[in-house]
């Protein structure tokens, strides 16, 4: 369980998150949606202790994120950031191997190699495994990053816009893989999505953020209504239901 209590964040004079409280139960996919600058990435990086907590408390599985040794946290929580930077001369397989670092501090066992191979295979990276990251296309690179987060094999997975740069096929594959590990392995996934229909089709719960506040929270079929969507994004859109899944027509 991820428990966020009264978390606020400010950078200088601007208040970025206003007194956020949110509890995410163990197991399942929670989608974070909201306009640009709403504070989604900020909230995620606070949960993943990438920046210090200024006010409030966050616990993951009962561990306070700002008081638990980093090593221990890295075995229960993995994060994929929106803007990951790369060093040079790094091969895809090496990058994915880093996902195993929290478990063996760099020493890889046969079991680790098996997990790495499986992650590579899952994201169709086997043929690219020996390529340098800087020579990949944007989507291939994104897949490599997701594969690394997968290889970390943590119970909690925080993904900030993992569908960036992915084509329709791989976007669907990624969402299906997430669905599978949530259902079969009981993983807890928090994912920032801009594609509201992906959220509608695959998430168990959608939490909407706007200007640093939670403005809507609920199951996709309850939340994806023209009225709520207008409140979140500020414009009108049609919603149809296809095969019991709400589909938002926001293109025109």
């Amino acid at each position: 369980m991820i428990r966020i209590e009264n978390v606020s964040l400010r950078h200088g004079k601007t208040q970025i998150l206003h007194d956020i409280s949110l509890t995410i139960a163990k197991g399942g996919i929670t989608a974070l949606v909201g306009p640009n600058g709403a504070g989604k990435s900020s909230l995620l990086s606070l949960i993943a202790r990438l920046q210090p907590l200024q006010a409030g408390r966050i616990t993951v599985d009962g561990f306070h994120v700002d008081a638990t040794p980093n090593r221990d946290l890295a075995r229960i929580l993995a994060i994929l950031r929106q803007d990951s930077i790369f060093t040079s001369r790094l091969r895809v397989r090496e990058l994915v191997s880093f996902g195993r670092f929290p478990h063996g501090r760099g020493r890889l066992t046969p079991a680790d190699y098996a997990i790495i191979d499986q992650s590579l295979q899952q994201f169709d990276l086997t043929d690219l495994a020996d390529r340098f990251i800087e020579t990949l296309s944007g989507g291939q690179r994104q897949r490599a990053l997701v594969a690394m987060a997968f290889a970390q094999e943590t119970d909690y997975l925080l993904l900030d816009e993992p569908l960036n740069n992915l084509d329709m096929y791989f976007a669907r594959e990624l969402m299906r893989s997430l669905r599978r590990i949530a259902d079969e392995n009981g993983k807890t996934i928090v994912i920032v999505l801009h594609d509201i229909n992906q959220a509608g089709a695959h998430a168990d719960r959608i939490v909407a953020l706007k200007s640093g506040r939670i403005v809507a929270d609920g199951a996709p079929c309850d939340l994806l209504t023209p009225k709520t969507l207008q409140a979140i994004f500020g414009f009108e859109m049609r919603v149809e239901t296809v095969d019991d899944t709400p589909v938002v027509l926001h293109f025109r």
């Binding site: 950031r81 930077i85 060093t87 880093f98 996902g99 501090r105 760099g106 020493r107």
Partner: peptide, 21 residues
């Protein structure tokens, strides 16, 4: 520290995510 250095090279955020203080 050779493995830790490899992880440090990925930058502060990624390294933190992988358990480096």
């Amino acid at each position: 520290a050779r493995h830790v250095l490899d992880v440090i090279a990925l930058g502060a955020d990624t390294a933190t995510g992988l358990g480096i203080s």
